[in-house]
Design a protein around this nucleic acid. Structure first.
Length: 286
DNA sequence: CTCGGCCTGCTC
DNA sequence: GAGCAGGCCGAG
């Protein structure tokens, strides 16, 4: 579910709501599905999580690509939301809920009791998410392979072009794999390609310098705009205050197959590319 | 690189 | 019942 704009929205809301509070208690509910990511990740660390988090003050909330970072003095809780992971926060007196449903529910896997009667809930129905405790100074191995932050300094048109040029894979696949640039998922990859006028199946090595420049600008602009609208809610994304993202109204191609292109009126196409449903305008994107 | 698998819930 | 879903990982 959540891509960079949604994770950034979650980060900002949590920062405001629970930044600076102390963690009083940690409640863990390890799921029972054997093969799932979340089961392993939680079961393996059940001891550590409680021991290292209890009594710690939340110094700040950070983000790397789609990872949310909850920083305490001793280290960092690294949260990846996968497809359906969610974080909710409730202050004293607020009724915690996910949409209409009160929390905690059967999909709630971690609850932090905070100072002042606040609580944080992590839930994940499909269990594709992960939670990892990181000692101060330790490095997450996944982070090493991640490309630059799209809104940061290291992400430049030159770097993007150089990365694309050596790959024959479709440009959409390259945007999704997090190595060239980190944080785009299926929605914003389609949206950025539309804004750049680039067909998703175009091989990376056939992207010209000026197209790479357009793509670079499009990626930054769509992510900034989506953050401004607090992300996209298709069905089950809610921020920690249970608000929907309003960017759905602004989507140009994602989920609009069969509808008219907002620019030229051509019917928006859809096909599977890189295993993901892909939406584009065959007139505007070449 | 692409594929299958990991899960649950929702819509047709 | 089948097909679909915002993500990633390991295998081939």
């Amino acid at each position: 579910m959540p891509e960079l704009p949604e994770v950034e929205t979650i980060r900002r809301v949590l920062e405001k709501k629970i930044g600076g509070r102390a963690i009083r208690a940690v409640h863990l509910h390890v799921p029972n599905s054997r093969g799932s990511r979340l089961t392993h990740t939680l079961a393996r660390q059940s001891r550590t999580l409680a021991r290292r988090l209890r009594g710690q003050r939340i110094q700040c909330l950070g983000r790397r690509a789609k990872y949310l970072l909850l920083e305490v003095k001793a280290g960092t809780l690294v949260v990846h939301l996968g497809m359906t992971g969610q974080l909710f926060a409730a202050l004293r007196g607020e009724k915690p809920c996910c949409g209409e449903a009160p929390l905690p529910d059967k999909h709630t896997h971690l609850v932090l009791d905070l100072s002042g009667g606040a609580r944080v809930f992590f839930r994940d129905a499909r269990k594709f998410g992960s939670i990892r405790w990181l000692e101060r100074g330790e490095i997450v191995k996944e982070f090493v392979k991640l490309g630059p932050e799209p809104l940061g300094r290291e992400f430049t048109p030159q770097q993007l072009k150089a990365g694309l040029r050596q790959k024959r894979a479709p440009v959409k696949a390259l945007l999704l794999n997090q190595k060239l640039v980190a944080g785009l998922g299926n929605i914003y990859a389609d949206e950025a390609l539309f804004l750049a006028g680039l067909a998703p199946h175009r091989p990376g090595l056939r992207v010209t310098a000026s197209e790479a420049e357009r793509l670079h600008a499009a990626i930054r602009s769509v992510l900034r705009e989506a953050i401004r609208y607090r992300g996209t809610t298709l069905s089950d994304y809610f921020d920690p205050e249970n608000r929907r993202g309003a960017f759905r109204e602004r989507l140009r191609v994602y989920g609009r197959a069969g509808e008219a292109c907002l620019v030229c009126g051509t019917i928006i196409s859809r096909r599977i590319l890189a295993q993901r449903s892909t939406h584009w305008c065959r007139h505007c994107q070449k």
